[in-house]
Amino acid sequence: MIAAGSETPLSAPLDVGFDYTRSVGPVLGRFVNALRERRIVGIRGSDGRVHVPPVEYDPVTARALTEFVDVADEGTVVSWSWAAEPLAGQPLERPFAWALIRLDGADTALLHALDAGSAANVHTGMRVRARWSDEPVGHIRDIAWFVAADAPPDPAPTPPPPPVAEREDGEPVGTIITPIHLRYQHSASPEESRYLRGLAEGRLIGQRCPACRKVYIPPRGACPTDGVPTAEEIELPDTGIVTTFCIVNVPFLGQRIKPPYVAAYILLDGADIAFLHLVLGCAAEEVRMGMRVRAAWRPCEEWSTTLENITHFAPTGEPDAPYENFAHHL
């Protein structure tokens, strides 16, 4: 037995992304549709202050606000911080300032980027103006960034606009789309890492919970019943039974096998916890609870640290397990 945790757990990059679509409603809708025309509108609060960007409800009285006010695309820096190494997705790829900017005609400040070349060129109170996107679409990024009010015109193109939602010709923008992409380093637990490394060698490694004595495959950082890590390592055979199953008839995005096919819980001989896999090698309607199956492995030169080394489980032709042998696993 090799103690779990004696090797560095496996980890791999995990990139996740989603295009968030949001309906803008009457207040933010007014704001983004004005941006599309290279105009900026604010809204008057209960106390008479003009909020830019507009807020739907007054931050103090919570009253719904309705009085829109046009403001300038030029204003004054109220505060700033320097972004020496811009991060993915930020308005500029070269060093820039984040700035709170009070536009002329507004009483609150808008947070945006300020293209100034160096921190030495930025100061509180400096006058700035919007650098409009070459292709405004009705999104906060229609303002590409701000520049010093006296900066010469910049002929360089602005970054491409964010994606736009489909709408009827002549209709105002009702939805904004913001792509979000995040990168992580995803780690497997020490116990899962033992199991995944075993798979790369064509072995099925389970572990026993020291409290309830059940054998888990994959092994667990904590037994869900007892809250302690599984420890004692058990090598399991690649044979077992189908405890329960379903016949997949519905096509879906990313499906790799043509329906109908069977997704089943496979309980390996000697394990106490079943896992989900495919049962192929017979007609879907022939799959039964209690059916004996064996793993179908890919050629060993294709093995890596994944259960995909086993393409599916196939019937062995042995007699079915009696129901009472697996009833407590259902």
Partner: peptide, 12 residues
Amino acid sequence: PLWPDSIAVAGL
């Protein structure tokens, strides 16, 4: 949508 990070905002 502008991705102002937590340190940038604290700096302001």
